[in-house]
Design a protein around this nucleic acid. Sequence first.
DNA 1: GCAAAGATTTGCT
DNA 2: GCAAATCTTTGCC
Length: 241
Amino acid sequence: MIPAPDLLPFPRVLLEAPAPEAARALIGALLVRAATADAPERVARIVEVEAYGGAEDGASHARAGRTPRNASMFDAPGTAYVYLVYGMYDCLNVVVAPEGRASAVLIRAAEPVGDPGPFLAARARHSARRRSVGPDAAVFASSRLGALPPAALLRGPGLLAAALDVGRDLDGTVLLAPGSPLRLAMPAPDRTTPARSGSPPAIVATARVGIDFASEPWRSVAWRFIDPASPAVAGRRTSGR
DNA sequence: GCAAAGATTTGCT
DNA sequence: GCAAATCTTTGCC
């Protein structure tokens, strides 16, 4: 299990950049879910994201302008945009770029930091709610899906939201405010190991997933960014074709 | 006012 | 490997 690092504030300036740039900056950043009635504080390391531009991006929810659903996309960078997809799963985005550009970064996958137990329990709760009668955390943990490696518990946008108890009630949350139920943070430099020779973390760029409806160049642009070494990343791990 | 499709996940064939 | 589950939003009549 990944040891918990010290948390530093996430620099707002990184989110004010154009969506693809901001998306890259979010790889390796931390999501911090404040304790709820059902779970203690949870921290997850982001390993897969997708950039969505504003009105001009044919794959973005902002392509048709402002609607009740996407209103949060037009708020300041650092705001959460949470929407329901396929009538079932909530997806978490971070609003980026200058306010009003309606750009956002979809958080597709992350790895649990620290004890994976609370993430597993939250996933089981959501799974149970969907089926109206379902497994508790212990039963779920022994199921085929619960048997996934703990590092893969937040693999995919729907599962990530479930494991972090992120729903549309968090739409519009300011992710840079210290007291928020959900916030962004940066890991403090690791001081227990000698300074690494300045090799940056490997980040691979690929085409975005599930947007076949979009026209070119938006369908093919390499705006999905992953840490290819992470077990939480599903699907293509290379930029090649 | 109604029909269609969606930035997904799961279970069965 | 494919189709169901499930419901909101959007676009067109």
